[in-house]
Each structure stands twice: as C-alpha cells, then as structure tokens.
Design a protein around this nucleic acid. Sequence first.
DNA 1: ACACATGTTCAGCG
DNA 2: CCGCTGAACATGTG
Length: 263
Amino acid sequence: MELMPELPDLEVFAANLTRKLSGKSLSDLKISERTSLNVSVGTLQKALLKQKLTRVYREGKELRFVFSNDAILGIHLMLHGKMTWENRDDQPVKNPLVRFSFSNGLVLTVTDIMNAVTVTLNPEKSEAPDALSVTITPSWWKKNLAASGAQIKSLLLNQKFIRGIGNAYADEILWTAGISPFSSAREIPPDKVRKLSSAVKQVLRAAVRMIKKSAPGIIGGELRDFMSVHNAHRETDPKGHYIRNSALGGRKTYYTDQQVLYK
DNA sequence: ACACATGTTCAGCG
DNA sequence: CCGCTGAACATGTG
C-alpha cells in the first residue's frame, strides 16, 4: 500500500529536489485548472517563468520552492499528491496538476487523484511553529500543553498548534515519550512534558536519517518499516509489549499499555 | 471482495 | 461561544 509521506519523507524529498534542481531555471510551467491555487495561472507564470530555482525546503507538511527573485512556491501534497520525474522516453504522466520543466531537461510533475493538492504563491507565515523549529523548547510545551484540554495525539496532529506531525509519527513520538495518545494534554506531568519535547525532535530526525540512508534520491512514496508501533504488521513493540490499536480523530492509533494515561 | 491507508475541513456536540 | 471530536472526501493496494 502506498502510504502518504510525512515530515521526514518530505524533508528528504526537499533535499533531493534541491540537489537536482538548484541553479536551474524554470523554462516551462503548466498548471491544470483543477489545481487549487491562490493566484491566477497567469500571475503564477509571470512570477516564476525563467527564474532560477535557489532551493527547496520543507515547512510543516508543505514543500517550498524558492526562486532567485525571492518568489516562493508552496506545494502541499495533502492525502494523495505525488511527485514524479517525467522521463523523456516514458509515457507522459497522466493528468498532472503541475508540470515544471527545468533548464537541465528535468521535468517534475505533481498528480493527485483527489485534486486536493494546494499550490500557493508566496505563502503567508503561519503562527504555529514547525515541529523541528528551534523555537520549540520544553518551556514552549509546558505553556502550551497547559492551555489545552485536548487528547495529546489530537493536539500533535493539529497544524494550528504545531506543524508537520502526521498520524504515523504522532504514534511513534508518543510511544517514545511513554505517554498514552488519549492523555489529556494539560494533565501530562513536567517530567513527561520534557520527554515529549525531546521525543518529537529525536523521532523525526532519526527518521530523516534512516530514509536518507535507505532510499537516497526519493521524491515520492514513503518508508515505514523502521516504525516501533505504527505498523499494522507488528504485534509487539521492540521491547516485546503488545501493540493495541483503536481510532482517534478518525485515524488509526497504535500504542502499548506501557504508555501512561494522564487524565 | 473489501478494509485500510492518509490530511484537512467543518458540522455538530458539550 | 468556544474548544474539541470525528465523519467525509477518493481510490490503489494487499
């Protein structure tokens, strides 16, 4: 099954896009009318055509293409968006939402069966910090968890609270921190808040390293076989504890009884 | 055949 | 009124 990329996958995609495309200029840009776009196609083309791509980075769950005139193109893949290289000898990619042609001959396409992908010229700055931002500290967690009565997993998935964490990594983070996903955010004690704070960065950074190592060059798909609990094929976690699963926020949630429930 | 992945939005509930 | 929960969206895959 093709699962959706989350923060670590997107981080690797961004690095790989930068490696292939930085310094190349955008020679052609086609946008389907099915694409959800914050400006007109004409405005977008005027802003980006002939511009040199400086780099691609990840912000939350969005990819950001930075051009030499400081224009930024944000692409959010949502649930089903996919990026592929369109090779000259292959069949053209069917019904792409976006098709970038670069001066080195590389053609990047974005497709989406649900047409839910969003394309944003010069996205606005978000209030919520990125999960890997240096502004997220144990005291940030302490203050913001105290203000919320939500279940901790719902809060981790809330992009208005913290950006970039998806369903699979939320489970991995809470397993690492030893906190039940059903815990009330404001009831988590200080020592566990510190554990959560470090687990977020530790889990996400470790995943980036593993994906880079095992799938260098990828711009699509995902890797999940290293996951400790969020894995439908596992019966037990690496310590041998039975993995339970149930629904939370309409998403499957995997956890063990070792994760303490604070209510 | 059919349950299951996934993110965001928004109706509805308390 | 506000914060929170969970259904709905669509379809390829095992």
